[in-house]
């Protein structure tokens, strides 16, 4: 490792043990936010320090790491975090979802289905799903203890009353294993169904707020809704301009001064895989 002043994967071993213990409790109580002694990381709070701490505590030389931000491997923050781990953890990196053993993500779940044995690490800004409805930790902790989630139901119902639909589009609250209400992090609600009964382990790290939570593999994750207003995801009339996908989450891009739009897959790996399948490489 080039930076001899720091331990393997940056964190000292005592800190890793503390985070590892928190992760095990998080897995044992799915969706419950475990407080942990979050440390300063060499990247700023709000830029993925929770995810980075979780990744640093689990990663090893046998791993292959993929890092995405907004679904893409080549966005600046994804590049920065991938370089950080290549530097401090001497770990192989990849952009291919199916090759990765650990995937750290901000704001997306890959389109390619995950497998048993993979770990998806989410970067979480505000872990408390009720925070914008109740700013006090002392209050929200009690609400979780009592499974008292009426305040969220009321909020969603008000949205229906005002807009005719639930207008919440990302960070859409879910109920895990029928017990804990959980923030899925600011993924678009398009990705919520992928969290349910997923064969991969999902770990969520909130660095500034010092919370870790988890969804074990094959665990029920239900997006909140009402019988007369069932949960639904975003749809596009367009398809991806690069790979023709009609199933993936599309980013909208403004391509000229006249405001002309183009839609492409947010998940760059998925898009490239499809492009290669459709147009075999010329030799």
């Amino acid at each position: 490792m080039p930076d001899g002043a720091y331990n393997y994967a940056y964190l000292d071993e005592q800190t890793k043990r503390m985070i590892r213990r928190a992760i095990l409790k998080a897995v044992a109580v799915p969706g419950y936010q475990v407080p942990f002694g979050g440390r300063e990381m060499p990247l700023p709070y709000g830029w993925g320090t929770g995810g980075i701490q979780v990744t640093a505590a689990i990663i090893g030389q046998d791993d292959t790491l993929k890092v995405i931000d907004q679904g893409a491997d080549d966005t600046t923050n994804a590049v920065s975090i991938r370089r950080f781990f290549a530097r401090v953890a001497d770990v192989a990196t990849t952009t291919r979802t199916e090759e990765a053993t650990v995937i750290q993500t901000r704001h997306r779940v890959p389109e390619t289905p995950l497998k048993d044995g993979q770990i998806l690490v989410f970067q979480v800004p505000i872990p408390e799903p009720l925070r914008m409805l109740e700013p006090r930790e002392t209050e929200t902790r009690t609400l979780h203890a009592l499974t008292e989630y009426g305040v969220m139901q009321v909020s969603l119902y008000e949205s229906i009353a005002r807009h005719g639909r639930i207008a919440k589009t990302y960070n859409y609250p879910v109920l895990v294993n029928g017990r804990y209400m959980m923030s899925p992090s600011p993924i678009p609600k398009f990705d919520n169904p992928k969290l349910d009964n997923n064969p991969a382990l999902q770990l969520y790290g909130a660095g500034r707020e010092k919370r870790i939570y988890a969804v074990p593999p094959y665990t029920s994750v239900k997006s909140l809704d009402f019988e007369d207003h069932p949960f639904e995801i975003e749809t596009w009339t367009e398809c991806c301009a690069l790979c023709d996908s009609k199933e993936s989450f599309l980013d909208e891009m403004i391509v000229d001064d006249a405001g002309k739009r183009m839609f492409v897959c947010s998940d760059t790996d998925y898009c490239q895989e499809r492009q290669q399948q459709h147009r075999p490489e010329k030799t």
Binding site: T75, T76, H107, T169, Y170, P186, D251, E252, S266
Partner: peptide, 13 residues
């Protein structure tokens, strides 16, 4: 940091 995805979701709704 980029918030393309969340903003896209908001645009759609």
């Amino acid at each position: 940091l980029p918030h393309y995805v969340d903003f896209q979701s908001e645009l759609v709704v």
